[in-house]
Design a protein around this nucleic acid. Structure first.
Length: 799
RNA sequence: GCUGGUGUGGCGGAACAGGUAGACGCCCGGGACUUAAAAUCCCGUGGGAUAAUAUCCCGUGCCGGUUCGAUUCCGGCCACCAGCACCA
């Protein structure tokens, strides 16, 4: 009988569709397990060949967990708001909701074709008003708690998307999505105070099981640094507050630098106002990209007529403005210590400013002595002779006593710019009233549904297309009843994805984002797999929202995900990224058509190390198809006999059970499959029993669920494979009675011997030295030492 | 520049925790079956020396070190990938 994968896969998918074996309820005595994959953005081009990689991996994990007796929640959904849909809608004059509906239908069909064991009853769609009602509700809660606020700020403006971008969305000075130039613009924007959670977002990484590289990347992004704020008096009367992590070098500060945007500049009347204004204007016109590009060459202007006083040396120091000091970090001003900071050193050399050594051990005339933790303080009256860490402690204490400064922790993380000037996003449920200011909509008016508009095009002025909807914009103030206007910006794509995993717990609830009971039962997520590209975006944002929801008593834990893993990308055969423009895209539909879903699933898992990217190879997929063919041919006609593992294959089967199980836990799907391939090769060498086949089918079932169900049925085993208990192994049965040991002479492999398992060292040495081959190498020599590694190797040292 | 990661046959990749490098698969070669081809099954397959075998030598980016023994540990380089990038 031929392996007709198309017919078999359809048969079982229809059965799963009708019988819903993967639909779960929280009413269960079993322990729960929540497995999560990142829900996709349903793009117009359908499922990418890369999508099935993480989905299959977590499907295998989920299917095995079910077999191990867990009540497994493995849900799926769509993160469907976003620019590509909106742009497609504009171009083709179709409503984005319709585009979204069609794309979701196609994605769903494709996902079902691959046999994932999702609980489809819990599918969510972020663009569904029943869903985004709760996204809006969370926004209102953030607003209520002072974590959402509107601010006039310089923003990243994408010249092509005509939209504000979050800092995280600007890559190398260009728009992450379209690659167009990003410029600075002053705009009034909704902001989320993620900085308030910076400390906890960094610290709580210690409590979760994430890959180290993810933790490090998040910590770097949050960028915690401990230092001090110090006040410097100026000859103009007011003081400049600076942030430094090197309080110890206070004696080495020889000038000050402020960012061109610093507020104090407006209060001063320097001798060279024109020069200053010119510099400020030039700086404001530069994009972030240009600022970085020019970073090699420091520029700046001195503020003439005003100087600052070093509180410890009494030195009158010139004050500069320069764009190497960022307005958005610390206080926007620094004390410059050219002796011990590379940037200050460069600036001082260019402007001929004094360089003072305050930590000995370097050569400050030739380069800044920066990594000077081992050095000793000099030229610093109060702290001379101290090490750098000791000097920090002492000088900070002194600053506090003198009322000149205090300890301070700063973060690189900035508040999250939360508004977008686009149509296809969640409306922000706020109205603006001349009398009452920003007024939140009452919860009873949620969801605030996106109105139908004529045009979705963004405007040149940077206003959302919603702004043209005067009927919708004009409203009444919920507080005073007077005339008011709706907020016309929408939320960024990251909003809906920041809490979707909570909705899966209770996806049809109209009264709460999810019931407390369902959240108590299902959350936190036990295992979340996703891409590295979301480390500082989605993963950080959703942790932030979750902590907030925890603080206001909505969710039971402060961290959303117990364990996070990351998959590598599937590249094109040429090693480049797959993209339409390069014409190297592989379609899952074609692969399933030619080889079947089980083969595709298997190949995506076999392709290489799950955590690393791997190039697609059309040839290699044949190996996986061949493997399934071989399995099919072994088991497609009913075998006789009982369901016990045969004596012949006992060791191999028990080893495979052990290896496949531990490999799935450790994300080593490729070696799990290799183990099963080797087992099947054994079965070809020596015919397996009906019980051997049964064991193989159970192991293979999470990987290739359709063919295994079919063969299970053909063999007349009870129930179905996916409902079996995951097989257990007996450690003693994974060992052979006789082992082959390597024999080395002087560390070089010279042969092998066979001895009984766990033979004692004497026996091993005797057997080895008695071996003809080995004897030749030790002939006429004296054995001075033998090293025996039990059951593995013996090394004979002979002179 | 900083932070992380990677480097193993013609190719994708294995190798628990210092112990037989190259599992498994692809490609390739040979054989069986077939009128023939495909499919399937069996065998071989890191490089070199030898006609092949037996056997020996070399071999995990490079240079050194520790060790009976190093792909694995240590020191110093090189290359590539990813993230960050004037964060005081």
């Amino acid at each position: 009988m031929k392996y007709d994968f198309g017919k078999i896969e359809k048969k079982w998918q229809d059965k799963w569709e009708a019988e819903k074996p993967f639909a779960v309820s929280s009413e269960s005595d079993k322990p729960k397990f929540y497995a999560l994959v990142e829900f996709p953005y349903p793009s117009g081009s359908g499922l990418h060949i890369g999508h099935p990689r993480p989905y299959t991996a977590m499907d295998i994990v989920s299917r095995r967990k079910r077999m191990l007796g867990f009540n497994v929640l493995f849900p799926f959904g769509y993160d469907a708001f976003g620019l590509p849909t909106e742009n497609y809608a504009i171009k083709n004059k179709i409503h984005p909701a319709i585009v979204t509906r069609d794309n979701i239908a196609r994605f769903t069909e494709q996902a079902k074709m691959l046999g994932f064991s999702f609980d489809w009853d819990r599918c969510v769609d972020t663009t569904d008003p029943k869903y985004y009602k709760w996204t809006q509700w969370i926004f209102l809660k953030l607003f209520e708690h002072g974590l959402a606020y509107k601010a006039q700020i310089p923003v990243n403006w994408c010249t092509s998307c005509k939209c504000v971008l979050a800092n995280e969305e600007v890559v190398d000075g260009v728009c992450e999505r379209c690659g167009s130039d990003v410029v600075r613009r002053e705009k009034s924007q909704w902001m989320l105070r993620i900085t308030k959670y910076a400390e906890r977002l960094a610290d709580d990484l210690d409590t979760v099981d994430y890959p180290e590289r993810v933790k490090i990347q998040q910590r770097n992004w949050i960028g915690r640094s401990v230092g001090a704020e110090v006040d410097f008096k100026t000859t103009a009367g007011n003081t400049i507050r600076i942030f430094t992590t090197r309080q110890d070098t206070l004696y080495g500060a020889t000038y000050m630098v402020m960012s061109p945007e610093h507020a104090l500049l407006n209060e001063w009347t320097p001798e060279n106002p024109d020069e200053i204004r010119a510099y400020q204007e030039a700086a404001s016109k530069k994009s972030d990209f240009e600022r970085t590009e020019l970073s090699k060459d420091k520029t700046g202007v001195e503020i003439k007529g005003i100087s600052a006083i070093n509180p410890v040396t009494g030195l009158e120091m010139p004050i500069f403005i320069s764009d190497y000091v960022l307005a958005t970090y610390g206080t926007g001003a620094i004390m410059a210590v050219p002796g011990h900071d590379a940037r200050d050193w460069e600036f001082a050399k260019k402007f001929n400013l004094p360089i003072v050594e305050v930590v000995s051990g370097g050569d400050v005339e030739n380069e800044a002595y920066v990594d000077c933790e081992k050095g000793v303080m000099v030229n610093s009256e109060l702290i001379n002779g101290l090490t750098v860490p000791d000097a920090k402690v002492k000088i900070t204490k002194w600053l506090v006593e003198q009322g000149l400064g205090s300890e301070k922790v700063n973060f690189k993380l900035r508040d999250w710019i939360f508004s977008r000037q686009r149509y296809w996003g969640e409306p922000i449920p706020i109205v603006f009233c001349d009398k009452c200011g920003h007024v939140p909509l009452p919860v009873s008016e949620l969801p605030l549904v996106l109105p139908d508009v004529e045009h979705y095009e963004p405007t040149e002025t940077g206003e959302s297309p919603l702004a043209a909807m005067t009927d919708w914009v004009s409203t009444t103030c919920p507080k005073c009843g007077g005339n008011a206007e709706r907020e016309t910006d929408t939320m960024p794509q990251w909003a809906g994805s920041s809490w979707y995993f909570l909705r899966y717990a209770d996806p049809h609830n109209d009264n709460e984002l999810a019931s407390r009971e369902s959240l108590n039962y299902w959350t936190p997520v036990d295992w979340y797999n996703g891409g590295m590209e979301h480390t500082t975006l989605h993963l950080l944002y959703s942790r932030f929202w979750h902590k907030f929801l925890f603080d206001i008593g909505v969710v039971p834990t402060s961290e959303p995900y117990l364990k996070r893993t990351s998959h590598g990308m599937i590249m094109a055969e040429d090693g480049r990224k797959m993209s339409k423009s390069l014409g190297n895209v592989i379609s899952p539909d074609d692969i399933v058509g030619e080889y079947g879903a089980d083969t595709l699933r298997l190949y995506e898992m076999f392709i290489g190390d799950f955590e690393k990217s791997a190039p697609w190879a059309n040839n290699a997929i044949k190996g996986c198809k061949r493997f399934l063919d071989r399995v099919w041919n072994l088991a497609c006609s009913p075998l006789d006999g009982d369901e016990l593992i045969s004596a012949t294959h006992e060791t191999a089967v028990h080893r495979a059970i052990k290896k496949v199980g531990s490999d799935i836990e450790g994300l080593k799907f490729n070696t799990a499959i290799a183990t099963m391939m080797a087992l099947v090769n054994d079965f070809y060498a020596t015919a397996p029993s009906r019980g051997d086949i049964k064991a193989l089918l159970m192991l293979l079932s999470p990987f290739a669920p359709h063919i295994t169900e079919e063969l299970w049925e053909l063999q007349g085993f009870s129930s179905c494979a996916l409902e079996q208990e995951w097989p257990s192994y007996d450690e003693s049965k994974t060992l052979e009675a006789e082992v082959e040991m390597a024999v080395q002479v002087m560390g070089k492999l010279r042969g092998t011997i066979k001895v009984a398992l766990d033979s004692d060292d004497d026996t091993v040495v005797k057997t080895a030295t008695a071996d003809d081959k080995i004897a030749r190498f030790i002939e006429g020599k004296e054995i001075t030492r033998t090293i025996v590694v039990k059951n593995k190797l013996i090394n004979i040292i002979a002179k």
